[in-house]
Amino acid sequence: MKKNSIVFLQAVIALIGILAIAMLIWFPTVEGRAANLDVVSIYADPFILYAYVVSIAFFIGLYKTFQLLGFVGRNEIYSPKAVKTLKGIRYCAMFLIGSIVIAGVFIKIAHDKRDDPAGFLAMCILATFMLTAISVIAARLEKTLQKNAG
């Protein structure tokens, strides 16, 4: 890959991380059930805290992807470090899949009967499918790199 392409993709990854942090800070203040709460109460909400804890795996996955692009840029894609990085991406994706499924099941069971959780559950399903694809791609690429590396 060209160096410019690698730098562009790394910039996109960094931008995604910055936007995700901004959304994590801003969204709870305008979200439905927390819109009328004070700042301390908003960020003490168990569901919001759960999202923050789970987002750590998302940011680790972004960092690992940034790192993998660095290996590609330095032509070290067949190195053991690159294989380990792909394994980390796969584990982050699998952790996020489990966490999203748990959140979806919780919302389905414990939602207020006046609320309609269909939108949230649809986002959970979409995110689960996307993360499953990422996990499968990372696993296949990991096996290919292991086979070609040694």
Rank of each mutant, 00 (worst) to 15 (best):
K3T: 11
S5G: 10
F8I: 12
L9M: 11
I13M: 09
A20Q: 06
I21Q: 04
L24N: 03
I25L: 13
W26A: 12
P28W: 01
V30S: 10
G32N: 06
R33L: 05
A35N: 10
L37I: 04
D38F: 09
D38A: 10
V39D: 08
V39F: 15
I42V: 14
A44N: 15
P46M: 10
L49P: 01
A51N: 11
Y52L: 13
Y52W: 15
V53M: 13
V53A: 15
S55A: 15
I56W: 05
A57L: 14
G61R: 00
Y63T: 14
Y63P: 01
K64F: 13
T65L: 13
T65E: 01
L68K: 00
L69M: 11
F71A: 03
F71K: 01
R74V: 00
R74W: 03
E76D: 12
S79N: 05
S79G: 06
S79Q: 03
P80H: 06
A82M: 02
T85S: 09
L86G: 00
L86V: 02
K87T: 07
R90A: 07
F95L: 13
F95T: 12
S99T: 09
V101M: 10
I102H: 05
I102C: 12
A103G: 07
I107E: 15
I109M: 14
I109Q: 13
A110W: 09
D112L: 11
P117D: 08
G119D: 11
F120V: 14
F120A: 14
A122Q: 07
A122W: 06
M123I: 12
I125T: 14
T132Y: 09
V136R: 04
I137F: 07
A139Q: 10
R140Y: 08
L141F: 08
E142R: 09
T144N: 14
L145E: 00
K147Q: 13
K147D: 10
